[in-house]
Design a protein around this nucleic acid. Structure first.
Lengths: 210, 210
DNA sequence: CACACGGGATGACAATTGTCATCCCTCTTT
DNA sequence: AAAGAGGGATGACAATTGTCATCCCGTGTG
């Protein structure tokens, strides 16, 4: 297997993705592109931030759902650290809530894993020149998508409820009274138009609010 | 980009995986191997079965969770069709239940997406020569893993309950009385040692029983 | 034929969950 | 100082959920 010559100043890319096989495959394929070079690979957001500091990539391609620190948090971290790296979110999920959060966190690209690798390379080039690269399917309904109506507490409690914890368990976990937990849950259920806590958790997850 | 010479009789591989980016990346990388050629790509189990008939692959690499027809069902279908293709399951999930079902369905390999692509190529070669390729982490506790204790009805009802449907909804969906639904759910909860239906659904999912 | 067995149904009871109106504190804002 | 607003707590009540003992009915099976 021979590597083609790199151009004088290839685009320096960092990949953050927790699934080894996909991460390795993407790195290998992107490295075959003449104008792209993968300078680092991270398995979660925390590691990615560290490596970004050390390798000064031009573009960071990151998954969202990773242990330790998510891709959305990574985007925010990089922005906060005033890194020059442009961020492209690469995810399975076409959740409007995710896209919105990604853009708020300063991401310049949002691409689905449903698309071929060639589009990723294309997105990297676009973003490197300062343009945006938003998946067309999502770009449309992103802004008309409704905003997460949940408060922090509601979200937090709903997350636990969705894992099967009972009201009283959640209450003692969070040092709240059981009644209060039920109140928050009830609020969340009405806000989401759900039938019960499980349904509410499902809806929130599907929209990328959890 | 130049493709290396293929050997006279390369291993013919079919890939079934619903996520386009991973599917494309794997196909591209495997094609770079001198002794492997990807003869077809499918986005679900149904399509894979059809393509397997048309292309007579030596090895089928398949994901488990796909729409239409899962990788486990595909393995069973191929066995039933007396296909000569050897099946390698490639999945994110280290669920003992999945491995067991895979082996029962006649799969010769079980590999996690947590491993590098090189291991996939290696597994393909092993399986092609008639050997097995089971992820070492799983091989150990696979057989001592407990068997799915749920009956079909219990599983079916638990699945619906896990999606947030109420007992009465499930009852009318399945033409059962509400009390009966509660009975099954209660059974499932005890069998799994869960705290409630949500917890039970979570546990069953985690073990690959749902 | 008698008997066990599995799928399904009932009825009853306790615990958990969902809903509401109200109330109590702290902060802000005016 | 008065008026809101947000986070949290209570209490009460209805609906849903979880648990059990029992029962009915068709299928095997000895």
């Amino acid at each position: 297997m021979n590597t083609p010559e790199k151009s004088a100043h290839p685009i320096r890319v960092l990949i953050a993705e927790d699934q080894t096989m996909l991460r390795g495959a993407l790195a290998a394929l992107l490295n075959l592109e003449a104008d792209i070079t993968v300078v680092a690979e991270a398995i979660n957001g925390r590691e990615a931030l560290k490596l970004a500091g050390a390798t000064a990539p031009d573009v960071v391609v990151t998954d969202i759902e990773m242990p330790e620190r998510s891709g959305l948090e990574l985007a925010a971290d990089l922005k906060h650290a005033e890194s020059a790296a442009r961020v492209i979110i690469l995810t399975t999920f076409a959740r409007p809530g995710y896209l919105r959060r990604a853009l708020d966190a300063g991401a310049r690209g949002y691409l689905l894993k449903e698309r071929p690798v060639s589009e990723l390379a294309e997105a990297i080039r676009r973003v490197h020149t300062g343009l945006r690269a938003i998946d067309p399917d999502l770009a449309a309904d992103a802004w008309e998508a409704d905003v997460d109506p949940l408060s922090d507490r509601e979200r937090q409690i709903l997350r636990l409820a969705g894992e099967g914890r009972t009201s009283s368990e959640i209450a003692s976990d969070l040092h709240l009274s059981e009644g209060t937990v039920r109140n928050y849950l009830s609020e969340a259920i009405t806000k989401l138009g759900a039938a019960n806590r499980i349904d509410a958790a499902r809806i929130a997850r599907a929209r990328g609010w959890l």
